[in-house]
């Protein structure tokens, strides 16, 4: 395991993710998530859909697949404009910090071709730059898909943070194979309702 991967997966990496809840804020507001059990069910569903897609794409981006093509394929897998915007904002911010932390031709090339890539693509290309394997890049993307929402639930519901981390520890990571297209209709609904909400603590 390369040290760069640890930095890349650290929630304290200053790349703006702390303000994204991945639909959790709206799910809490609508009462869909209200305790540990519903949180676990939400996270498991998010992981096997959005998480699996992110893992597959981060893995392929790390393996050197053309990022522009991957980006277009992710657009086709992200029907919700709110989710596309959240993914591109996080991708842009990650790319920004990655270029300053790990200056490299690969990241410059990515920024030149895609100034605001979908997050899994920024993550995958950066993972390759720090020497991580495609499988590790996929795992990092899958974790990113659930750690942000889990932390948001801690803040929004006052859940025991240790219990929430125990939930995270028991989730099965999807294996980052191929380019999955698993969709989650409720995440789309939550994202679109969240975007229209006048009172928001999180960006997404």
């Amino acid at each position: 395991m390369t040290p760069g991967l640890l930095l890349l997966t650290d929630s304290r990496l200053p790349a703006g993710s702390h303000a994204h809840s991945g639909g959790m804020e709206q799910a809490v507001k609508e009462g869909l998530v209200h305790d540990l059990a519903s949180l676990e069910s939400f996270l498991a569903g998010r992981l096997r859909t959005a998480g699996a897609v992110a893992a597959g794409f981060a893995s392929q981006a790390c393996a050197g697949h053309d990022p522009v093509e991957l980006d277009a394929e992710l657009d086709a897998r992200t029907a919700s404009p709110a989710q596309r915007e959240a993914a591109r904002t996080q991708g842009r911010l990650l790319l920004r910090v990655a270029r300053r932390i790990w200056p490299s031709p690969a990241l410059e090339e990515l920024a030149g071709r895609l100034p605001s890539p979908h997050h899994p693509i920024a993550l995958g290309v950066t993972a390759a730059v720090v020497g991580a394997t495609p499988r590790e890049a996929g795992a990092a993307a899958a974790y990113h898909a659930v750690t942000g929402p889990a932390t948001a639930a801690v803040r929004l519901l006052g859940l025991d943070p240790v219990a929430v981390h125990r939930v995270l520890a028991t989730l099965d990571l999807p294996s980052p194979d191929g380019l999955p297209a698993a969709s989650a209709p409720l995440l789309d609904l939550l994202a679109e309702r969240h975007r229209r909400s006048p009172v928001r603590l999180f960006v997404s």
């Binding site: 639909g23 799910a27 869909l32 998530v33 519903s38 069910s41 939400f42 996270l43 498991a44 569903g45 998010r46 096997r48 859909t49 959005a50 897998r77 029907a79 999955p180 297209a181 698993a182 969709s183 989650a184 209709p185 409720l186 995440l187 939550l190």
Partner: peptide
């Protein structure tokens, strides 16, 4: 899009 129905527990995300 791919959607799995009836293959696992229902989730408030799906």
């Amino acid at each position: 899009q791919e959607l799995e129905l009836g293959t696992g527990p229902c989730s408030p995300a799906v």
